[in-house]
Computed example of a mutant assay.
Amino acid sequence: MLRQITYSTTRFGIYEELKSRVAPTSDRAPSLVTLVGMASASGFIGGIAGNPADVMNVRMQHDASLPPAQRRNYRNAIQGIIQMTRTEGFGSLFRGVWPNSTRAILMTASQLASYDTFKRLCIEKAGMSDNLSTHFTASFMAGFVATTVCSPVDVIKTRIMTASHAEGGGQTIIGLLRDICRKEGLGWTFRGWVPSFIRLGPHTIATFLFLEEHKKLYRKLKGI
């Protein structure tokens, strides 16, 4: 919840605000390139805002796979952030911020921009109405695209965030990539794609279905 409050709220909010500012200046809907640009900027800022919570999210999920002596045993996200800051310094909150921000850019561009594009194609090319079926179709395809685009970055991000200093937490991204490719080949890029899609697919569908209904309700209440 902390991650979604900081990360998703930031990226969705900035993206929708940018779209509302661009749309009145053009007679046509924003192009795919414009949507990708706005989504990339939104994702980058959201990735930075949500990085501390994301580190906690990854570490707390990873804890169960560690031997009892090596577990961090954070009681909750807030306590974990405080403990990590005390023991590893403030900079530890932004461990993996660059791959995380890169992932946020790819996620937001592939998720939000592709959803708007698929939705427009469904309405303009397939003759579908702006209804729940269209939103479901567009969000399902957006989830597929987002999972495929983000899979390699997810692997790198998780390995950096779960590492401690003793395990090579200070290793550069280039060094980590070199080691992974040497040990595992190129197959690592889509390792875990299926469980990622099982998680991200329904998440993307639910997100956009609720977002569309929320926007309809908001516009009705505001008389827009």
Rank of each mutant, 00 (worst) to 15 (best):
M141P: 03
E167V: 00
S151M: 08
A126H: 11
V155S: 07
I173N: 12
C150H: 08
P152L: 03
L121S: 13
V145W: 00
H165S: 11
S129T: 04
C122R: 11
L132I: 05
L121I: 14
T137D: 00
G170F: 00
A138V: 02
E124W: 02
C122P: 02
T162L: 06
F144W: 08
C122Q: 12
C150M: 12
M128E: 06
C122T: 05
S164C: 05
T172V: 00
I123E: 14
T137L: 15
F140Q: 10
E167T: 04
D154I: 09
G143H: 09
A146L: 04
H135E: 11
L132N: 07
V149E: 10
M141C: 12
D154H: 11
T162Y: 04
T137W: 01
T137K: 07
M161K: 14
I123R: 15
F140T: 14
A146D: 04
A146Y: 06
V149Q: 09
A138T: 04
K125P: 02
V145Y: 00
E167L: 04
S151L: 09
G168F: 08
G170Q: 07
K157P: 01
K125T: 08
N131I: 00
K125A: 10
M128N: 12
A166C: 05
V153L: 15
E167W: 01
Q171C: 02
I173Y: 15
H165G: 07
T172L: 02
F140K: 10
G168M: 07
G168Q: 11
G168N: 09
A138P: 07
M128K: 14
T134W: 06
F136D: 03
V155H: 15
S133R: 15
A126E: 05
I156N: 07
V145I: 11
V155W: 15
F136E: 03
G127V: 00
T158P: 06
H135R: 10
S151N: 14
G169T: 02
G143W: 10
I173E: 13
T147D: 02
F136T: 12
T162F: 03
V149C: 09
V149W: 14
T134P: 07
G169M: 06
M128I: 00
T134L: 03
E124F: 00
V145A: 09
V149N: 11
A163P: 05
T134D: 05
A166Y: 10
I160M: 15
G170T: 01
E124I: 01
T148H: 04
